[in-house]
Design a protein around this nucleic acid. Sequence first.
DNA 1: ATAGAATGGTTTCGATAATTAACTATTAAT
DNA 2: ATTAATAGTTAATTATCGAAACCATTCTAT
Lengths: 146, 146
Amino acid sequence: MTSLKDLQELTIDHFWETIPPLWNSIRSHIRATATGNFDITVEQFHVLRFVRRGMSISELATAKNISRPAISQAVDVLVKKGLLSRVQSTTDRRYVELTLTKEGNALLDSVFKETRGWMKERMNKLSTDELEAIAKAMTALKKMLD
Amino acid sequence: MTSLKDLQELTIDHFWETIPPLWNSIRSHIRATATGNFDITVEQFHVLRFVRRGMSISELATAKNISRPAISQAVDVLVKKGLLSRVQSTTDRRYVELTLTKEGNALLDSVFKETRGWMKERMNKLSTDELEAIAKAMTALKKMLD
DNA sequence: ATAGAATGGTTTCGATAATTAACTATTAAT
DNA sequence: ATTAATAGTTAATTATCGAAACCATTCTAT
């Protein structure tokens, strides 16, 4: 008989055997397309991702666990590359509203599309049953974050 | 009727909504304990993880997608911190065998235990059914990496 | 058997990127 | 109205990374 505790332990083991290498592999694919097709690093790509979700400088800093100055400087680079722009907020003029430029949006879309294709290729190995299990698991894992 | 292609798309969506934020959250937990209790960065922790699995300098470099010199230097730091040690291989003297010191092993164990506890806490929200789905999904996801 | 190629790792050095501390501007609190 | 707090930037220092050049060792091909 398998207890709930044992099942938890087992699931955590599975998680650690799977997610880090998988995520690592996805990351290197992103790195390849981001640095190859465009000239940005994965970290810069990550910043763009967060900006699209409407994050401010401070939020970015806490989300990425690096200092505010570091983000400020990273934003500098991306602004100079023409990928995003700073606009002082009208409601609270301390805030700087970060928005993606047309080029920034296009870049994100392109990398996402590329990565999606790469994932789909790999998913062809999986059965309907397995895909459904993944979908269900994702919903469950999301609960862990609340 | 849902086609296989649609299911793939849906699953990828679920994946992207779930795994990055979850992984991010796990990573920041690791960062908190690794930098708080001990004085190392997440990257250094990552190196220790790989060393425990028996990776060499070169393997580390390709696995982490950074240059060999960078790894060599990162190892320097960890050696100076007393967390790992270099020993020239006897079978092929070009190789350097990286091994964790007692302190290095203790550190890894401690961070793992801490993180595991954190995950278990969150998993209490999940039913047996959901845990099984996760385990199954992990096996499926692993297939994507071959 | 030996010269040359290949492999594993390190060192040096220049360029990037991160952190800390100090600073400006703006808003909130008492 | 002062003071405190927040959002962001700037400047100076430190740490990290990558390219090129290097050493030592092993493999390869004649």
